[in-house]
Amino acid sequence: MAALSRAEADARSPVVFDLHETTVRALNAELHAPSATSYEVLHPQGAHSLGAGIHDEIDVAIRGHAGYFCAGMNQLGRVVVDGSAGNGVAENMMSGSVRVRGDASQSAGATGRGGLLVIEGSASMRCGISMKGIDIVVGGSVGPMSAFMAQAGRLVVCGDAGDGLGDSIYEARLYVRGTVGTLGADCVEKPLRDEHVAELTELLDAAGLDHRPEGFRRFGSARGLYHFTGDHGSY
């Protein structure tokens, strides 16, 4: 029998970190200088900062609920949370991918610069706040004030969006399949053109979600807040 390559060995038996036995600090130290390419985290019990600051192309499966800042600042990692995630999942992600099988708390993907964040359940308030290039696909709904000051990237919501969607938005593109509570300041509905259907198809495929792209509405900036004008009062 031929020896397994390292990748094959990793794929068959990921390195296991049981957080009943070890600490988040030890886990993250290993993930920052990985000696393997595949990891499994057991008993996360909602601990904070799981897999934050991954630089390398590694797979991390978190078997349970994650706390705050899970997979924050991710570079090339592929992180899956088999549970829910707390505040700021994948915050400031640069690239790679993060998938949450359950729901996500507030500020999911906050300030993210790149990569793909998929939340199969729903995300709470301020999803995609100040997003700067990240793509976020939410299988369920997002809470109020989502995409606040969103600067670049795409936010796809397969359910409903809460009040104040896209308040003070710059150039991010928002797609919502369900209802929108209210639109925030300077956020307007825009026509869904062919190029938008094409990018939605791509994003839904990447997320593994089976929705008809034509069923979405697109929202973006009216570009009325870019510069101060006489309408903004005198100083």
């Binding site: 706390g67 708390s105 507030q106 109020p144």
Partner: peptide
């Protein structure tokens, strides 16, 4: 935080949400 609720009996069947 959710982690305080994670061990409640039947949490997997509970409706979990953040208040508006």
């Amino acid at each position: 935080e959710f982690r305080a609720l994670a061990d409640l009996p039947g949490i997997d069947e509970a409706r979990v949400f953040e208040p508006d």
